[in-house]
C-alpha cells in the first residue's frame, strides 16, 4: 500500500490533537507515515504509533528550527521524492499552508487547502471544503502529482489503531535560499489556560456588545470549558487579541457549540463560524442577523443573561 505522509504538529515533541486526526484520515487513504521536524522525536513516538504511523521520518537538523517554512517544505519534498506517497496531509494552519504551497510548486502537485473531510472514493482521494463563507460545500480532487491537502482541525475524531512505527532518520541540509528569512526575536504569548480556539469543542465569542468588558464572556466560557473568541469589531477596538478573532480574516472555527455574545453577525464573522454544529446567540438587538443562524437565541442584555447562565451551568455541573 502506498504511503500517506502526515506532517506532525508538535511543541517540543508534544504532539497536538490535529496530528492524531490527520493520522486517522491517512489510514483511509493508505499507509500513514509521520514526518517529524524538530527536536524530541522520542517523546512523540508513542503517540504517533498509537494512531497508526508505520514510519516516522525525522531530522533534527538545526536548519529546520531557525528558519521559517522553507526548510520544512524542502524536507518534505525530499521525502516525497524518496517514498512516492499518494498524498501529503498537512495541518491547515498559516504555517502549514505555506509549507503546502511551496511543496506543491516543488513537486508539481495539485494543492487543496482547508479540507474538512478527506475520503477515498472509487480509488480517488476526494476532499470536502466549505467555501464562500460556509454557504457552499465543494468536493474536489487533486489530479496531478501527489495530492497535497491541508486539513482543518476537528475534521475527524481521532481513532487509535496502534502500529509498529519504524524510526526513519533522514539526512537533511537546507538550501541557501531557505535561509533568507530568519526569525530574529520571539516573545511567547501569555497562556490563557483555555482550549485552543480552532480545536475547542465549545467556543464563546464576544463582540461590540461587550463594550470592551469580556469578563462575563470569559466566566461563561470557563463554566463550559470553552475557548474564547472575538469578533473583528472587538479586535479592531483593541478589546481582545487578533489571534482570538473569529471570522474571514481570523480563525475559522467549527465547534460542536458556538455562542455569539453581543455579535451582530456580519458576513465577515459568519465566514468564521457558520459551519458550527449548534449556534447560540445573545444580543440586545432582536433584528441582529446572527439570529437567522441560531438554534437558540436570547434577546437581552448580556450582562444580565450571561451571569445567570454561568451560575445555572455551574449548578448543573455540580
Amino acid at each position: 500500500m502506498a504511503e500517506v505522509l502526515v506532517l506532525v504538529e508538535h511543541i517540543d515533541g508534544r504532539v497536538r490533537k490535529t496530528t492524531a486526526e490527520l493520522l486517522t484520515i491517512a489510514r483511509r487513504l493508505g499507509e500513514p507515515a509521520a514526518v517529524f521536524v524538530g527536536s524530541n522525536v522520542a517523546q512523540a513516538t508513542d503517540v504517533l504509533a498509537k494512531y497508526g504511523a508505520t514510519k516516522i521520518y525525522h531530522s533534527d537538523s538545526a536548519d529546520l528550527a531557525d528558519y521559517l517554512v522553507v526548510p520544512q517544505a524542502e524536507f518534505l519534498a525530499q521525502i516525497v521524492a524518496q517514498s512516492s506517497p499518494v498524498a501529503v496531509l498537512i495541518p491547515s494552519s498559516p504555517e502549514g499552508k505555506e509549507v503546502a504551497a511551496r511543496l506543491a510548486v516543488k513537486t508539481d502537485s495539485g494543492l487543496i487547502t482547508d479540507a474538512v473531510d478527506v475520503q477515498l472514493a472509487d480509488g480517488k482521494i476526494v476532499t470536502t471544503q466549505s467555501v464562500f463563507a460556509g454557504s457552499y460545500t465543494v468536493a474536489a480532487t487533486a489530479t496531478t502529482g501527489t495530492a497535497i491537502i491541508t486539513v482543518k482541525p476537528n475534521s475527524a475524531p481521532p481513532q487509535q489503531q496502534p502500529a509498529e512505527s519504524v524510526d526513519t532518520p533522514v539526512e537533511f541540509a537546507a538550501s541557501d535560499l531557505a535561509k533568507t528569512a530568519r526569525i530574529t526575536a520571539s516573545s511567547p504569548k501569555a497562556k490563557s489556560g483555555r482550549p485552543e480556539l480552532t480545536e475547542a469543542a465549545i467556543v464563546v465569542s464576544g463582540g461590540r456588545g461587550t463594550s470592551g468588558d469580556f469578563s462575563k464572556v470569559e466566566e461563561f466560557a470557563d463554566s463550559l470549558g470553552a475557548a474564547v473568541g472575538a469578533s473583528r469589531a472587538a479586535v479592531d477596538a483593541g478589546w481582545y487579541p487578533h489571534t482570538s478573532q473569529v471570522g474571514q480574516t481570523g480563525k475559522q472555527v467549527s465547534p460542536q457549540l458556538y455562542v455569539a455574545v453581543g455579535i451582530s453577525g456580519a458576513i465577515q464573522h459568519r465566514a468564521g463560524m457558520q459551519t458550527s454544529k449548534t449556534i447560540i446567540a445573545v444580543n440586545k438587538d432582536e433584528e441582529a442577523p446572527i439570529f437567522e443562524l441560531v438554534d437558540f437565541g436570547v434577546v437581552g442584555d448580556l450582562f444580565n443573561v450571561l451571569p445567570q447562565a454561568t451560575e445555572a451551568v455551574k449548578t448543573a455541573k455540580g
Binding site: 466549505s130 467555501v131 460556509g134 457552499y136 460545500t137 465543494v138 489530479t143 496531478t144 502529482g145
Partner: peptide, 10 residues
C-alpha cells in the same frame, strides 16, 4: 492540477 468535482449550497 485540482478539479472541483461538485458543489452544493449548504
Amino acid at each position: 492540477w485540482t478539479t472541483v468535482e461538485s458543489f452544493s449550497a449548504r
